[in-house]
């Protein structure tokens, strides 16, 4: 059985006097124990909202959440606030995008680590501090004992994100959700943080949901990748399949916009034309149609459904032919 089974998850934001807005629309995916699953798509496609809904961290008012997120047999979405507080930090950990704003500026790093140990492990005083120093050491923070009494502004961006990873993994959760954990960091630091995450989840057997807009991040990390567009999954594939013969035109667009080290000099990146705001709602056809090079008439009339496609899944009326995909992949 999967560790986490998300089924038909939907999130609708509804503010007074505004039209309801569906940010996540019928999303389903599984995460097996120890597996790393990617959630990929351009900004605004619903990645963060998906993860916040699973964690029970959406704003308390102004939204409706549907579907289920079953974690070890329990539907997290049906739990009470208090029951969720028991699980967050213990069974489910989360790392966010901006490490500076994600740490409390007026509280020492030490307390920010030990408070989660105290909450779920009942550890206090010196025992908690020793454990916290051990955790900081494990995520590669030098001189961890001294760092405990320091404050976030005294750490570099990379060190802050390491501290946040230490906090998220402090109680050895079985699932870690990382929402663009490297987006706010320098390129060199990004690679370090990614390899740290990979090492930690491999060592501890923690399952990882990796959220990113950057397929390059997925390449070295994920076993399976879900590509999101306009709140829906448009393609799901195993990592190699995705990179070698992606079938969805949007995935192709994303692949075209990753810088490749082996690309011949002078080859230009091909960004996807248009932007997420050039959307049509899914119920009038395919939301990607206005930007899609493959669009056919059908795309503007009927909504494509997510169907099994070889080993993966695909939502498209006119996917990229395998032969083209292989050729492009070999380019």
């Amino acid at each position: 059985m999967a560790l986490l089974e998300v089924r038909d998850l939907s999130v609708v934001f509804q503010r007074k006097g505004e039209k309801p807005f569906t940010a996540v629309d019928g999303v389903s995916f599984d995460v097996d124990p120890g597996q790393t699953v990617g959630l990929v798509g351009e900004s605004g496609c619903g990645k963060s909202v998906t993860s916040l809904a699973i964690m029970g961290l959406l704003p308390r008012r102004g939204n409706r959440v549907g579907g289920t997120a079953t974690f070890e047999g329990t539907n997290l979405l049906s739990l009470s606030d208090n029951q969720m507080r028991e699980r967050r930090g213990r069974d489910l950990g989360m790392v966010f995008q901006d490490p500076l704003s994600s740490l409390n500026p007026v509280i020492s790093i030490g307390l920010q680590v030990t408070e989660v140990l105290q909450r779920h492990r009942g550890m206090k005083g010196d025992a908690a501090k020793r454990k916290a120093a051990e955790l900081l050491d494990k995520v590669g923070i030098p001189d961890p004992t001294r760092r405990l009494s320091e404050y976030p502004h005294q750490l570099s961006g990379g060190m802050r994100q390491r501290a946040l990873i230490a906090i998220a993994l402090a109680c050895a959760p079985r699932l870690l959700i990382a929402d663009e954990p490297t987006t706010a960091l320098d390129v060199t630091i990004q690679a370090q943080i990614l390899s740290l995450l990979k090492e930690l989840v491999t060592d501890t057997g923690t399952a990882l949901v990796m959220i990113t807009h950057d397929l390059g991040v997925v390449a070295g990390l994920c076993d399976e990748v879900n590509v999101l567009y306009g709140g829906k999954i448009v393609e799901r594939a195993e990592r190699h399949a995705l990179f070698n013969h992606a079938r969805h035109p949007y995935t192709h667009g994303l692949l075209g916009s990753i810088p490749r080290l082996d690309a011949p000099k002078g080859e230009k990146l091909v960004p996807i034309k248009g932007s997420v705001s050039d959307n049509i709602p899914w119920d009038n056809g395919c939301a990607f149609a206005p930007r899609c090079p493959n669009a056919i008439d059908d795309c503007r009339q009927t909504m494509p459904v997510l169907e099994t496609d070889g080993p993966g899944q695909l939502r498209c009326h006119n996917p990229v032919e395998l032969a083209d995909a292989v050729r492009e992949g070999a380019r």
């Binding site: 606030d81 966010f96 409390n104 500026p105 509280i107």
Partner: peptide, 26 residues
Amino acid sequence: NEDFVRTAESKGLGRQTVRRRHVLRN
């Protein structure tokens, strides 16, 4: 609405701890 309050919530801290230590103090 600050990110660090969301982090505090993601740790599963009790409501009172989040309020006193993270919200009120700042």
